[in-house]
Amino acid sequence: MKQDISKIQQKKIEELISKGKRMDGRHAHEFRKIEAEINVINKAEGSARVKFGESEVLVGVKLNVGEPYTDSPDEGTLVTSAELLPMASEEFESGPPKIDAIEVARLVDRGIRESSFIDFKKLCIKEGELVWNIFIDIYPINWDGNLIDAAAFGAILALKSAYMPKLTEKDKVDFGNLSNKRLPLTENVPITITVNKIGKSFILDTTAAEEKAICSQLTFAVSKGDDKELHINALQKNGDALTEEEIFEMIDLGMRESKRFFDLFEKITEKKEKKE
C-alpha cells in the first residue's frame, strides 16, 4: 500500500520539478534552512547538531589510544559509523547497519580521509606502538532526506570542535579530563554535496519524499587544496546511468553550492573560538 502512495507522490514530484517547482516552494538548487551548533554533547570530545529543514542529525567524535595499523605505524586512525535509528523515521528498522547506513558512513569517511583534513602523522604518540584513534559516529534524529550532506557537515564541525583528552602516565586516556589541544586539522576542509537528477532536472537538498523520485545521484566531497582551488576528493554515483555532460554539469552545480558550506563552516567554528 505504501508503495502505491509513493508512486502517486513520485509522479506529482516529477511533474512539479519538470515545471521548475518543488513541493515546499523551493527552487531546484535551493537548500532548506540550515542550522548547526557545536559542542552539544559534553561526554564527546567533539560534537555537532545539524539541521537541514526538518532533517536533523547528531554527530559525535570520540578519541582513544591504540596500536597503529601495521602498514602505517606512524599514523593515527579514523573509524566512521552511522546508525539509522528507527526513532528518526518509520522507514528505518532496528538491527545491524544495512547498506544505507554503511554508505553514509563510507562517504563521510572518504571525504575526510582523502582531503587530508586530518593530519594523521600528528596523531602518532609512539611509532609502531601507540596512536590516537578517532571515532566519528553519526545518528539521524529526525530524517527528512539528504542525510549524507548533513552528516558530512556535522562530521567536520564535530572534528573542528573537538579537544584532545589528556593521557595518564600509563598512556591511557584520562576520560573527562580534556586538554586545551585541538585535533591536528589542516585547511583542507572537505564539503560533501549531493546532486540529484529527477526527471531531467538537477536538484539539491532533497526531502524524504523527493528521494523516492530520484533517478540518479552524484555525491562528492570537495576541498580547497594548497593552491586554493577546489579539488574533488571522493565521488559516488547512484541510480541510473548518466552521460558525461550530465556528470560535469552536476559537478559544476555542486561546486558552486559548496561555497555556502565553506562560509558557514568558518562562521560556526570562528564564533566558537571567539567565545573562548
Binding site: 554533547i41 570520540k62 546508525e83
Partner: peptide, 15 residues
C-alpha cells in the same frame, strides 16, 4: 528499545 549513543559516555560505547 533503549540504547545509548556511542558518544554519550566517557569511553566510546560500541554502537
Amino acid at each position: 528499545t533503549y540504547d545509548m549513543l556511542s558518544f554519550s559516555v566517557n569511553e566510546r560505547k560500541k554502537p
